[in-house]
């Protein structure tokens, strides 16, 4: 059933750990992101305001960890390549962050991604892929745990898709 929609049996990929990825919190790139999302809070823009609030440097907004991994590791997410899924078939299903230590401008972060769970929904029309991502910084701190779930839209069985 899955041979038409994935290049390997998805269940065989559960537990797979991808090679760690690094990302750098670059200040001008962060500023572009802040302007794009309409974030004007001084703590994100002014080093002095950030230090007065107790940070080492300007912190990143809560969802930016997700972006950093993509920014410094361009191309489609590795999981799509592993499973043979075209990017046009995916939607974002869920995104969760648990924060343990702040990430700040100048930090070099390490992302370790593991496929946590893969399950079908709607009679196999959709496949949910949940990845658990651990983020550490260069100060021996566990920065965050992320769970990111993508939804793969599978071609209808009646179409006899070959791709």
């Amino acid at each position: 059933m899955t041979s038409e929609t994935f290049s390997i049996d998805p269940q065989s990929a559960v537990g797979h750990v991808f090679p760690s990825q690094r990302a750098f919190v670059e200040p001008r790139r962060l500023k572009f992101f802040l302007e794009t999302i309409g974030e004007t809070n001084p703590v994100y823009h002014d080093t002095r305001a950030a230090r007065e609030a107790g940070y080492r440097d300007i912190p990143i907004p809560p969802t930016y960890l997700f972006c950093l991994q993509s920014l410094d590791n361009p191309g489609p997410p590795a999981v799509l390549e592993l499973l043979g899924v075209d990017i046009g078939r995916i939607l974002h299903g869920e995104q969760k962050f648990a924060f343990h230590h702040p990430a700040c401008v100048g930090d070099e972060l390490v992302f370790t991604t593991r496929i946590r769970d893969i399950s079908n929904k709607k009679g196999g029309a959709l496949t949910m892929i949940a990845q658990a991502i651990r983020v550490d910084n260069g100060h021996d701190q566990h920065v965050a745990d992320i769970v990111s779930t993508i939804v793969v839209r599978n071609p209808p069985h009646t179409a006899g898709a070959t791709q």
Partner: peptide, 13 residues
């Protein structure tokens, strides 16, 4: 809520 106060943040799309 200041950034330092956020412990968890998650959504379903």
């Amino acid at each position: 809520f200041p950034p330092s106060s956020v412990r968890e943040f998650g959504v379903r799309f």
